[in-house]
Design a protein around this nucleic acid. Structure first.
Length: 569
RNA sequence: GCGCCUGUAGCUCAGGGGAUAGAGCAGUGGACUUCUAAUCCACUGGUCGGGGGUUCGAAUCCUCCCAGGCGCACCA
């Protein structure tokens, strides 16, 4: 589509006395296909020439009447717009050939030129079970890794495990008082969770518990053997559980650098902020006063000498820049931590790091219940494992009902069930809160992953029945495509690269997710109106090549969202 | 109190200066002897939270207000 815009801009430039790049920026898509494929609005020109936009459009239409270009067949004035109609035989041939030749590379680019992007995502808190709340960071972060990689960046996925902090003090207190080795070995994460909830219940009644917890964390920071042993035990057991989930989701991190990874860099951070005069002592604590910048003060060291999350994030940012020399460092973390990242970036700036602004918080909304927010402390949460398992089970039931003869039902159920959960988190704009609703999570109709996967599976099925999974390319055959459904499909396929680019530029996988629904919808319309396996050999070949391209885009696109594309379901 | 985010059809959400505001779900009616009906088609459904403003043109930008959410020193 881009080269069509360029060509049209070249044609218009001498007529309207505007720069080509300016014209290309103005070109837009008309609201309905019968109005053409690209429109040049004449409003800005009207102001300059002091004529009505409709008159200018008509004039341009007159000037171009009878003319055609390499990729367009006619230009027609309609109201204040000059509408260009694509030359579909040529456009379709060029596009489908491009997809045919590029295959799994279609949509990929080298915009990033190998620049390193560090992506901090998933980052569950040790000792707490993997809740549905953490799925957003996990799924969005993973999709961003894949999308940015497709734009030519070198991505470095880091699981910034919450494996340090006062919650370990709490866990140790709880385990010392109520812990049972046997129960811990049986079902470690759930048992730790049980203790965590109990701690907060007891702490409600007795302030001494919180104090005790802080003391234990201080002992952990000081490296006392007993505390460290507990910490190692809890950490190991939690990680074993997380790995099962990551395996199921097909996610591999480049590094599991949790907060504890930066422990021996914290003294340097403290020293640096003091030497540069960025931090001051206040009420026994070490803080950075950010009032000048409209931000509340940020604490780097508590009065008991223990450090905080922010201190470790400052260390982590410097470590990451030093180690990976990133062009961007993304933090896929809930919107409720916005202030934290504003403070972090501002402090990095005050410390004189030119790359401070390259640290970017990618916020997302909360998952909440109808009744209110989730709370790990109060035990009000839903386990991710449960959600994934239920989705897979339901997918299995539906497959059993709809396609009982399917050979590998288990694998298809996994692809569909996991796809549904992933898509649910990727298809809506990140920043919005979402209400957790089992019916919605377990819905496989309408705008869902299953809808896209089904389109893909149908195409695979047609290709199987055609007797050739990989029909040979033919320039001539493509001319047989002329139905509205076919043109719409071709045009949608052409938008794929720009959708990935938009997704990457705004760090919003939802753009790509929505687009894939459009592709699947256009395909389904085509499917119902245009039989592929017809007798006419040219038409048959043309449609086979068309659906081959659709399959490629669906597969590539789903791949960038971390969603599998089943051949049968 | 201050700051940030959100408000579009009964419900869940797209659209983020441009032509008649679109999907899905729910509802009603229709399409499987034909490439998988997890599909498709049609109909019904709107003070784009409200008021001002900028603009040839505002759901979209600015401003004030309302509602909900989230933050704001020893949690992460």
């Amino acid at each position: 589509m881009d080269h069509c815009k360029e060509e049209i801009s070249r044609v218009l430039a001498p007529l309207v006395m505007l720069e080509e790049s300016r014209i290309a920026g103005l070109l837009e898509e008309p609201p309905a296909p019968e109005m053409g494929d690209l429109a040049f609005p004449c409003f800005t020109l009207a102001a300059q020439k002091k004529q009505s936009p409709a008159a200018i459009a008509a004039e341009l239409g007159e000037a171009l009447s009878g003319r055609r270009g390499e990729c367009w067949e006619k230009a027609v004035a309609r109201g204040p717009y000059l509408n260009f109609y694509l030359d579909y035989p040529v456009f379709s041939r060029d596009l489908l050939k491009k997809i045919y030749e590029a295959g799994s590379e279609y949509g990929r680019s080298n915009l990033g030129k190998g620049g390193a992007i560090v992506i901090d995502y998933s980052s569950p808190n040790i000792c707490k079970p993997f809740g549905i709340g953490h799925i957003r960071s996990t799924v969005i972060g993973h999709a961003l890794c894949l999308i940015l990689e497709a734009q030519g960046y070198r991505t470095i996925g880091i699981n910034h495990l919450g494996d340090w902090g006062t919650q370990f003090g709490k866990m140790i207190v709880a385990y010392e008082r109520w812990g049972d080795d046997e129960k811990l070995q049986q079902d470690p994460v759930n048992y730790l969770y049980h203790l965590y909830v109990r701690f907060h219940q007891e702490a409600e009644k007795n302030d001494a518990f919180e104090e005790e917890a802080r003391a234990w964390f201080k002992r952990l920071e000081d490296g006392e053997e007993e505390a460290v042993n507990y910490w190692q035990l809890f950490r190991r057991l939690s990680l074993e559980n997380y790995d099962q989930i990551y395996d199921l989701l097909g996610i591999k991190f480049d590094y599991y650098h949790g907060e504890s990874h930066y422990n021996d860099m914290l003294d340097d951070v403290i020293r640096m902020v003091q030497e540069k005069g960025v931090a001051v002592e206040s009420e026994g604590a070490l803080i950075v006063d950010l009032e000048k910048y409209g931000l509340p003060p940020a604490m780097l060291r508590k009065k008991d000498g223990a450090t905080l999350y922010l201190t470790r994030d400052l260390a982590a940012a410097q470590y990451r820049h030093r180690t990976f020399n990133f062009v961007k460092a993304l933090y896929v973390v809930g919107a409720e931590q916005k202030l934290h990242f504003q403070q972090m970036v501002k402090i990095l700036e005050l410390l004189g790091f030119s790359w401070a602004q390259d640290c970017i918080h990618i916020p997302f909304g909360l998952i909440r219940f109808k009744e209110g927010r989730m709370s790990t402390r109060e035990g009000k949460m839903i386990l991710l494992e449960e959600v994934l398992q239920k989705a897979i089970n339901l997918a299995r039931e539906i497959i059993e009902e709809k396609n009982p003869g399917l050979a590998d039902k288990e694998s298809a159920a996994r692809m569909v069930g996991l796809g549904a959960v992933r898509f649910g988190d990727l298809s809506n704009d990140r920043v919005k809160d979402v209400e957790f609703d089992w019916d919605k999570v377990l819905d496989f109709s309408g705008e869902t992953a299953a809808y896209i996967q089904y389109a893909h599976a149908r195409i695979c099925s047609i290709l199987r029945r055609s007797g050739s999974a990989d029909p040979a390319w033919s320039d001539e055959a493509i001319a047989a495509l002329g139905r509205e459904e076919e043109k719409a499909l071709v045009k949608t396929l052409a938008a794929y690269p720009e959708k990935i680019e938009a997704s990457a530029a705004s760090y919003r996988p939802s753009i790509l997710a929505r687009y894939l629904v459009d592709v699947a919808r256009d395909f389904n319309r085509f499917y119902h109106e245009c039989p592929v396996l017809v007798d006419d050999p040219e038409l048959r070949r043309a449609r086979l090549l068309l659906i081959l391209a659709v399959r490629q885009v669906l597969k590539n696109g789903l791949g960038l969202l971390g969603i599998a594309a089943p051949e049968e379901m």
